[in-house]
Design a binder for these strands. Structure first.
Length: 684
DNA sequence: ACGGATTAAACA
DNA sequence: TTGTTTAAT
């Protein structure tokens, strides 16, 4: 898996920032009385007190560990405060943590290149900022050093020695690379303070010349501290380290290193030649291992502030396994509903759309020989709108199920459980692309809607042909059956051919409910006439959608109506911490406690409705996913202006800007982007 | 077949 | 490309 990258003889300044017991901190911010107490976040209180997923440092002193059950935790630490993960749609809902993570990212992204590595971790490439600082305001001429930076740990430097850290940071005769790291340390200290001020969260960080070392360092002194790894101390630092602690070696690869080569520490690994390692682990992994042992790692910090996929899943362990299609369908609906909500906000906030829908499941088979088969994952193009996602997800499941059970299951309609049970379900949306230029993406977007409808069907169609129809799998006759009907092919075979924008018509069904942008339904007229299919897009308002949906599944077992997706973003617009006094983390808390309640200063709109982390328009740091789009051409004159009104609001704006005569181009960045897109598309 | 829910990335 | 596998938090 690990792949060696050509590494630049490294003078980069890389930081890894890791939030301290993040979920706990999120809960403590929400409920400040928990601060300073042994606390853990737990999900699913039902069985043995639920499973811990985050543990405060106070609780760790008692030996409480992640992956303990709530009950165990109580035993070793009776005082422990257990906070439950929010539940929505019958499952854990991690959105509050995701959003909190975005708050952090949006602060950290202010300096350098920022990569959101997980919900609570970030990599930063601060090389440029460090170089600049070194040139303009080198630490050696600073008279005061950031207090927090002065508290850094520097590997190889004795912390107890007087002023030694300060001295190291400001050393005049230091190695150039060390000076850069020193600047990095100052910058990171500053950023960590900004994070604290902006979010009330503490974090720890590692500063080094590459990602691997930075990551190792960030974990060395927690919580709320930072650690620098000068090049000169890398070897001594790495040598005694158990390989299993290294990223990527925590699993099977690390184990096989131990078992086959007797390698237990990084130092042990040094004794093997690159060739030898390549023999054992392949060319790429071999080289990667060889480099890793020497503290070398060329991986770059990806400029990516937003996740590349969204998923929603749930496990149904043991006795809770799902044994009927009806129950699978019910849960699938919940999962799809959540996924839809997240796709929705990604569209609104970041102007991104996902193009692939994937279903994963795990299941067992009873009374069958090969009961250890894996449930295959299936995917298809993603169509927006809850109902469509639900419909497609169910089809994907059914396709997977019949493959799982083995075809030729011309099964006698014993429609109940024939010895299978589903122990896990998850759906995810991937291949997310941003909508930079309205136009082209919109075309893709609509096109997607057609392609999809036939292509999912093709998938299930194929499996039907291959495998003689299953009896109406599960519950009765609805969507599924419909979707299996022969359908007209609406795909324009298009590679490079000329395109006209599909006509959009509105079904002005009675007034749209609140947030709904309008329900718009697209009809696609094939030139040959015969095929016409209507595709409905809904950008919000799941309920509306289901009502209007032409071939909508009518809720069969539908108990799922209990909870109207209120989901009104509970904006408990929490206080924004006062501008703090102390220049250190400790100082922050000290000053903070004294007047914590008083200063409910200006509402910070940041967390309100504003885009979280990687704010849409500026994908500066982001991987440029823009130019991937296939080649479609279209004529601006064919766009009926009236149609624009029916597009989702955020797309409307872009289209308008795009449609407008380009006289005053280049006013805004956005405008120029779009126009340039247009002209490019036009000449093409 | 209890460490759940997510994410990412490399490989076949 | 899709689907599978590994790994991490």
């Amino acid at each position: 898996m690990p792949v060696a990258r050509p590494e630049s003889s490294d003078s980069r300044v890389i930081a890894h920032v890791d939030m301290d017991c993040f979920y706990v901190q999120v809960e403590q911010r929400k409920q400040p009385s928990l601060r300073g107490q042994p606390t853990a976040v737990v999900q699913y209180n039902s069985w043995q007190g639920g499973g811990l997923i985050a543990v405060s440092y106070e609780a760790r002193k008692f030996g409480v560990k992640r992956s303990m059950r709530g009950d165990e935790a109580k035993q070793v630490c009776p005082e422990i405060q257990l906070v439950q993960v929010p539940v929505a749609r019958g499952k854990a809902d991690l959105n509050t943590y995701r959003n909190a993570g975005s708050e952090v990212v949006s602060i950290l992204a202010r300096k350098g290149i920022c990569e959101r590595a997980s919900i609570d971790e970030v990599y930063l490439d601060l090389t440029e900022a460090a170089e600049k600082m070194l040139k303009e305001t080198p630490p050696e001429k600073l008279e005061t050093i950031n207090e927090e930076a002065a508290k850094s740990h520097v590997l190889g430097i004795d912390k107890d020695e007087n002023e030694s850290i300060k001295n190291w940071l400001c050393r005049n005769d230091a190695d150039y690379r060390d000076k850069l790291l020193a600047c990095g340390a100052l910058i990171v200290a500053e950023l960590r303070l900004q994070v604290l001020n902006g979010t009330e969260f503490t974090c720890s960080a590692g500063i080094a010349h590459n990602k691997m070392l930075a990551k190792l360092a960030s974990g060395m002194n927690k919580p709320a501290q930072q650690t620098v790894v000068p090049s000169s101390s890398v070897m001594k630092f790495l040598e005694p380290l158990p390989i299993k602690k290294m990223k990527q070696l925590g699993g099977k690869l690390g184990t096989s290193l131990q078992n086959h080569l007797g390698v237990n520490t990084v130092g042990d690994l040094l004794h093997f030649s690159e060739e030898k390692l390549q023999e054992h682990f392949g060319i790429n992994t071999g080289t990667w291992l060889w480099n890793t042992a020497r503290g070398m790692n060329g991986e770059e910090v990806q400029g990516r502030l937003l996740p590349m996929s969204h998923g929603s899943g749930k496990t149904f362990p043991g006795p809770r396994a799902l044994r009927t299609i009806a129950s699978v369908e019910k849960w699938l609906r919940e999962l799809c509903d959540e996924l839809n909500e997240r796709l929705q906000s990604d569209l609104e906030q970041n102007k991104r759309i996902a193009r692939t829908l994937t279903l994963h499941a795990s299941a067992y088979k009873t009374n069958d020989t090969d009961s250890f088969k894996k449930f295959p994952s299936k995917s298809c193009p993603l169509r927006y709108g809850t109902a469509k996602i639900q419909e497609d997800a169910l089809i994907l499941f059914q396709v997977g199920l019949r493959e799982f059970l083995g075809y030729y299951n011309v099964n006698t309609p014993t429609k109940q459980q024939d010895g299978w049970g589903v122990t896990g379900l998850s759906i995810s949306a991937s291949k997310i692309v941003s909508i930079p230029s309205g136009t082209r993406s919109i075309m893709n977007y609509f096109q997607n809607q057609y392609e999809t409808c036939s292509s999912v069907k093709q998938l299930s169609q194929r499996s039907i042909e291959d495998a003689k129809p299953l009896p109406p799998l599960g519950s009765g006759n609805h969507s599924t059956l419909h979707s299996l009907e022969p359908e007209v092919d609406c795909i324009h075979e298009s590679k490079g051919s000329e395109y006209a924008i599909p006509t959009l018509e509105i079904h002005e069904e009675d007034g749209e409910p609140c947030t709904v942008e309008g329900f718009l339904s697209t009809s696609c007229h094939q030139e040959d006439g015969f095929s016409e299919e209507t595709v409905a897009l809904s950008f919000s308002g799941a309920e509306t959608c289901s009502r209007l949906e032409p071939n909508q599944v009518d809720p069969m077992v539908d108990p799922a109506d209990e909870e109207t997706t209120n989901s009104l973003k509970s904006k408990e617009q929490k206080r924004k911490p006062s501008k703090n006094k102390g220049t250190s983390i400790l100082g922050y808390f000290q000053s903070r406690d004294s007047f914590s309640k008083v200063t409910r200063g200006s509402p910070c709109k940041e967390s309100e409705a504003s885009p979280p982390a990687g704010t849409s328009m500026d994908p500066t740091g982001q991987n440029d996913q823009r130019r991937h789009a296939g080649s479609y051409y279209y004529n601006i004159n064919e766009i009926d202006p009236a149609v624009v009104n029916e597009l989702p609001q955020e797309i409307q704006d872009e289209v308008r800007a795009w449609l407008r005569p380009r006289k005053q181009a280049n006013t805004t960045k956005k405008g120029s982007d779009i126009t340039s897109y247009f002209s490019r598309a036009k000449d093409a």
